[in-house]
Design a protein around this nucleic acid. Structure first.
Lengths: 155, 155
DNA sequence: CCGTCTAGGTCTCCAATATAGACCAGGTCT
DNA sequence: AGACCTGGTCTATATTGGAGACCTAGACGG
């Protein structure tokens, strides 16, 4: 029976309550007490995750990890294509969450240097492999896309 | 001298030409020949990176890695808060890039199962630690935020 | 003295994107 | 017949992203 299979499948998922069923569905924040869960919509960890998991934040972290402390304009040059607005916004976010330190030198013209804090360095070390992997596998993925597009265009 | 310091800092960056200076600024695609560069705006790897580096794609990969093959609606329940539209779109993307396999069982009601392909499993294994790290450090980051907000609100 | 340059932003406006919610096919169950 | 199911798509609205003007405040040129 179809229903049977669906039930089994769902039951299988239920057996991984922590990560996939989301202890905090809409019932509150039970997750906060015994552990955070990025899969749960209202878990604080999800909020944090959602802000870190975008291309600009990740690229900024990688750039800081690779090249060390950098000024605003160096970062803008290093992270190709980022607008000042998004760079500011992402950096503020990283600063706010304690990942990045912002140091202002009150000169003119102003000089502002961004550097990783220990927490940010931890994350950067997890993110770096992701960047390297993407570069390494980009060719394969581009090929897959071409094939997908070819067979899906009109088939 | 201030200028001196600035010059040294910038020079330091230039010595890492591959990742941070972006061989493909607007000069073409030199990066494509000897290696991809996610920092370069026009590098194919950046395009791929930009599509993978968003919360929904990463959460979907993590869910598939943790819970195994799942149907559309299971994923929607597993990844709290994702809209059908974004789920569809992200899954299509992952499928198109060869990370995920989509299998349709022509029953009624329809059943569609998504599973990781080897390429997707590779990536998922890099992404999983990121999710775990976020959960582990969420408390610290939330605290940092509160302090930041307190000292920045009016100070 | 006036204009210009600089770095690191902010502000404004407009396009692109995300989300919520309605709708659809088409076969099963009541 | 009518309700219900899944895996979407379509539409209307809210949010976000990017381009480019503007700002501060001192150093420099003339």
């Amino acid at each position: 029976m179809t229903t049977d299979e669906a039930t089994r499948a769902r039951a299988g998922q239920h057996e991984e309550p922590q990560a996939c069923e989301g202890p905090a569905g809409e019932s509150g924040e039970g997750a906060a007490e015994q552990g955070y869960d990025v899969f749960a919509q209202l878990c604080p960890s999800r909020e944090v995750f959602a802000e870190l998991a975008d291309k600009w934040s990740l690229l900024i972290l990688m750039s800081l990890a690779l090249c060390g402390p950098q000024r605003f304009s160096e970062l803008q040059r290093g992270v190709g294509g980022v607008s000042r607005k998004m760079l500011t916004q992402s950096l503020r976010n990283l600063e706010r969450s304690g990942l990045v330190l912002r140091t202002v030198f009150p000169e003119t013209p102003p000089r502002v240097v961004y550097d990783l804090l220990p927490l940010g360095r931890e994350l950067a070390e997890l993110v770096a492999p992701l960047g390297r992997w993407t570069e390494h596998r980009a060719g394969r993925m581009m090929a897959a896309r071409e094939e997908f597009d070819a067979t899906h265009a009109r088939g």
